[in-house]
Every structure is written in structure tokens, then in C-alpha cells.
Computed example of a mutant assay.
Amino acid sequence: MCLRTHLTMRLRERHPGNISGEHRSVLELAEAMRYELDLQDVDVSATREKQLNEQVNKNLKGGAISYSCSAAKPRTYSIRKGLGDWFRREKWWFSAISITSVACSTLWMSGTVAFWIWTFGLWIGQFWAFCICTTIGSRVLMIVLWCVAFVIIALPVTAVVAR
């Protein structure tokens, strides 16, 4: 519930710093009343309480106010829709990891150790790039670093296996 509320507030562009507390809500209420009663040019200290009460009951129907929002239903965050959007946005990465997983398992069974180690490095790089990185450049860099690391590991292993 906390996650859904947080994401809904972000969707509506109402960040925690923008939510009215006790002091800010009083000022917002006063500003809304000044606007609705058309009191921008009137000195409120000279107005009597009875006059304000009559205007509130007559013009504002008792003083009901609300935040401005469209007539349509306010947008709320849906976890199901969010997951669907995420899968659609990352479909190429899911495909790449799946293909590399199949290649790793096939090469492991074929016995080509050096190429399998490099392919496993590619898979590890894709996995961590997908989990940690957010931009394409950072993901490519992560994959290249893991591939280089596993090539460095594969060279001595290949030399030992070749003996």
C-alpha cells in the first residue's frame, strides 16, 4: 500500500514536500476563501465575523472547498500496469538474457571451456547491467567490463585445460 501510494503521488506530481500540513493547509484555505469570496481588495480586519459568515453561507454554500482537479477520475498507480509497462520497455533485455542463457547451457555441454567462460561473462554482464544500470551506455559498459574480466579468467583456464 505504501509503494502504491508513493507511486500514485509521483504520478499526480504531489511530492511529499508539496503535501499540505497543518500550517500550509490553513494558508491554502485562507487563500481559497479570499478568492471565492472576492476579498482580494478588501481589508479583512475591518470586516465583521457575521458578514463573513453570511457570505460563506450564501456564496460558498457553507464553506466547502477542494483541491482543483479535472472532472475525470484522478489517476492512480496500478502495479499490474506498471509491471506490464516495465516488461514492454525491457523486452529486448529479457530476450538477450534468455538467448545468452541458452547459449551458455549449450556451450557448457559442448565442452568448449574458453568460449563457455566468455559467454558466461556475457550473461553475468547482462544480468548485472539489467539489475543495476538504467541507461544504455552504462549497461553496455557493464557488459564489456564483465566480458573482459571473464576473458582474463578464460585465458589461464584454457592454458591449464590444454595441457
Rank of each mutant, 00 (worst) to 15 (best):
M1S: 15
L3P: 07
R4L: 14
R4F: 07
T8M: 04
M9C: 12
R10C: 05
L11K: 11
R12M: 08
R12S: 04
R14T: 09
R14Y: 12
R14A: 08
H15W: 14
H15A: 04
P16D: 03
G21Y: 12
E22S: 11
H23L: 14
R24D: 03
V26N: 08
V26D: 02
V26E: 10
Y35T: 13
L37W: 10
D38Q: 14
D38R: 07
L39C: 06
L39S: 05
L39W: 15
D41M: 05
D41G: 09
D41P: 04
V42Y: 07
D43Y: 03
V44S: 12
V44D: 11
S45T: 14
A46C: 10
T47F: 03
E49V: 10
K50R: 12
N53A: 13
N53I: 01
E54T: 12
E54F: 15
Q55I: 02
Q55H: 09
V56M: 08
N57I: 08
K58A: 11
N59D: 10
N59K: 14
L60C: 14
L60F: 06
K61Q: 13
I65R: 11
S68A: 05
S68T: 11
A71V: 13
A72H: 11
A72D: 13
K73T: 11
R75Y: 10
T76L: 06
T76Y: 13
Y77N: 06
Y77V: 05
S78F: 09
I79K: 09
I79C: 03
R80I: 14
D85V: 02
W86M: 13
F87P: 01
R88N: 07
E90W: 06
E90Y: 11
K91M: 11
S95F: 15
S95C: 10
A96G: 11
S98L: 04
T100F: 03
T100W: 01
T100E: 06
C104T: 04
C104M: 04
M109C: 07
G111I: 03
I124R: 02
Q126V: 00
Q126C: 06
Q126S: 06
W128D: 00
W128I: 05
F130R: 02
F130A: 00
I132D: 03
I132W: 10
I132N: 07
C133N: 04
I136S: 02
G137D: 06
R139S: 11
C147S: 14
C147E: 05
C147F: 04
V148P: 02
A149P: 00
A149I: 10
F150D: 00
I152N: 07
I153K: 07
A154Y: 03
A154S: 15
L155A: 13
L155E: 10
P156V: 01
T158P: 01
A159W: 12
A159Y: 13
V160G: 06
V161P: 00
V161M: 07
R163Y: 09
